[in-house]
Design a protein around this nucleic acid. Structure first.
Lengths: 103, 103
DNA sequence: ACCATACGCAAGCATTTACTTGCACGTCAA
DNA sequence: TTGACGTGCAAGTAAATGCTTGCGTATGGT
């Protein structure tokens, strides 16, 4: 269920960075944000002091990985979280047999 | 449920590399392998021609991330897959609402 | 004891990555 | 149109990363 142009490795590399994980956390907490909103809320809520350009580049990587979808309205660009690509990670390797202690 | 000394970012960075994901695939397919066995089976089954030292360093990173556990017997060191740390990724962000088409 | 085997350590190198810097483009209000 | 605002683009830099190379250590067979 991966969108066209999204390579598998992109998803893994996208979530390998701490700042990008914080961005996903932010969008999970509050969807539909502009670049400036994300910058501000990251600085306040997550203690990250990244520049606008840095966040912009991170968002581009997340979008390429299919983890963030965007929608342009006028001069604003809104960002939405899409966790569907994470299913790749969940389904790739077997679940730990955590119920071995029973029976 | 993370072992001591394992940082969150280590797990994400560990699976960000394609070779390391192939190693996890290999151990999922066949657990309890030595370094040389992994090298050989990676070359044959996954078309990867990585050197022993390269694989060794990857295994160290995977072990630091808690994704691989080891057991030494004589001069052999056996490697085991442990997918428990992956629960971090699964539980961190909300699941996609894929059942919106229903109802 | 000897040597081969299985693995570990550490320095060096090339590529990748995250970030900055400076400028450019499109949108909206006056 | 003018200017401010929100965003995009691209070159340059410093750090991280993956890999190689060479040597070192411990175990086991003969």
């Amino acid at each position: 269920m991966l969108a066209y142009g999204v390579r598998v490795g992109d998803v893994f590399k996208a979530i390998a960075d701490e700042t990008r994980r914080a961005i996903l956390d932010e969008l999970a907490e509050r969807d539909e944000q502009t670049l400036f909103e994300i910058c501000g809320r990251l600085a306040v809520g997550h203690g990250l002091a990244s520049s606008r350009q840095a966040i912009s580049q991170h968002l581009e990587i997340l979008e390429d990985a299919g983890l963030v979808r965007t929608e342009r309205r006028g001069r604003y660009k809104y960002h939405f979280l899409d966790t569907a690509p994470l299913q790749l990670i969940i389904s790739r390797w077997p679940r730990p047999e955590e119920n071995n202690h029973a029976d």
